[in-house]
Design a protein around this nucleic acid. Structure first.
Length: 84
DNA sequence: CAGCTGACTGTAC
DNA sequence: TGTACAGCCAGCT
């Protein structure tokens, strides 16, 4: 039984380079439209380098990053994200 | 098993 | 335009 967490990890890992997704979008893609908070809580606990959690941003803010928000911004800019 | 926590989101002032 | 409040869900203790 894949938990919501596992699906979120898959969804985030499937985000193409240069593109970002909001917590709400990820939650929706994972099957839970209103579980944006749960997504954030999961990302926080997830230190797997295979998960580009820096591509997950908030709808009104950048959100956060377990390895340093500065690194997140840097990566997004390098990938071509103009939302910074 | 029940309660608390959190990288959210949308609405209201 | 910016800040504050309430509602929402799953994971973890």
């Amino acid at each position: 039984m894949r938990t919501f967490k596992d699906r979120v990890r898959e969804v985030v890992a499937a985000i193409p380079r240069g593109q970002v997704m909001t917590y709400g979008e990820v939650a929706r893609r994972a099957g839970h439209p209103n579980a944006a908070r749960a997504v954030g809580a999961i990302m926080k606990s997830n230190f797997d380098p295979a998960i580009p959690c820096h591509r997950v941003v908030g709808a009104t803010s950048l959100g956060g990053y377990n390895r340093g928000l500065d690194l997140k911004r840097k990566r997004l800019q390098e990938e071509g994200y103009a939302g910074v």
